[in-house]
Design a protein around this nucleic acid. Structure first.
Lengths: 139, 139
DNA sequence: ATACAATTTAGAATGTTTCCAAATATTGAC
DNA sequence: GTCAATATTTGGAAACATTCTAAATTGTAT
């Protein structure tokens, strides 16, 4: 059996052709633990693993995977987009110092009742971000 | 009494000199209702009100006001920073279609117990963003 | 294999934000 | 008020993430 068939299947079932670069990126993203990546750092990782792919393709692929529900886009910082391989609804720590994201285990935050969405609209997402900063010794 | 003395005082008490442009921007921001602005749209508003100020100064001023606790920066979109004149802890709707923010009235969302911040760090903020999208008629 | 369609690519373009060094304004001392 | 010292403002350049574009390459169905 092809060593990549799992990833190829994953991509196919999202309605995308399993191209060389999509398969390679899917391997980086979906083998192993859940991950939080930015386009730039996934691109650098690919390059350092000798995967020949362009930055534009990394952007395209991240968006295609997101549209296909394989990734979830997370907004925690006004200057960068993060993509989370865990698409189940959950919340995030954002460690300002190093720009890293962490998952908040399910159940650790409980949201109360949500307001209704106005007519003709729907709630697309509810995101909770707990931003963690260093303590400044303000004595 | 100087018509701007309220704003001048506000700026002084934040430890900033009340320059022409800071006073003018403070008037736009703090007279009337609470507001959600981006640097770009505050800049355009200032220009259309014949306030002579540069975009760089708008950015500087928004950050200085934020550092001084007069504004709160809100991250809802990966491409733009929003600043909220309401610095009390509260949450937001984000209307994707037109890039506008709305406040979620206090009490409409109740957060359960929060996790502890790791050693040497503290929770800087907890932001809840409810993103509102248009309903696509997927029939 | 071939042909048509989809994807990838490098580089240009865009949009937001920050940086810079020069010009201007503000402040505090007299 | 004037002056010198300091802080602020400014336009333009630079930085950065992201999107766009049109040409080249690859994938797919036959």
């Amino acid at each position: 059996m092809h060593p990549n068939s799992y990833f190829i299947e994953h991509i196919r079932s999202a309605g995308l052709s399993p191209t060389r670069q999509r398969v390679a990126l899917a391997k980086l993203l979906f083998q192993g633990e859940n991950r939080h990546v930015t386009a730039e750092n996934l691109y650098k990782e690919a390059i350092s693993e000798k995967i020949s792919v362009s930055l534009a393709t990394v952007y395209n692929t991240l968006h295609q995977f997101t549209d296909a529900g394989m990734l979830r886009e997370i907004t925690v910082d006004a200057n960068r987009s993060y993509f989370d391989t865990n698409t189940k609804s959950h919340h995030h720590f954002y460690f300002e110092k190093d720009g890293k994201l962490g998952d908040i285990p399910d159940g650790m935050i409980t949201l109360g009742k949500l307001p209704e969405a106005p007519q003709g609209t729907k709630i697309k997402s509810v995101d909770v971000v707990v931003t963690i900063a260093h303590v400044d010794n303000d004595y």
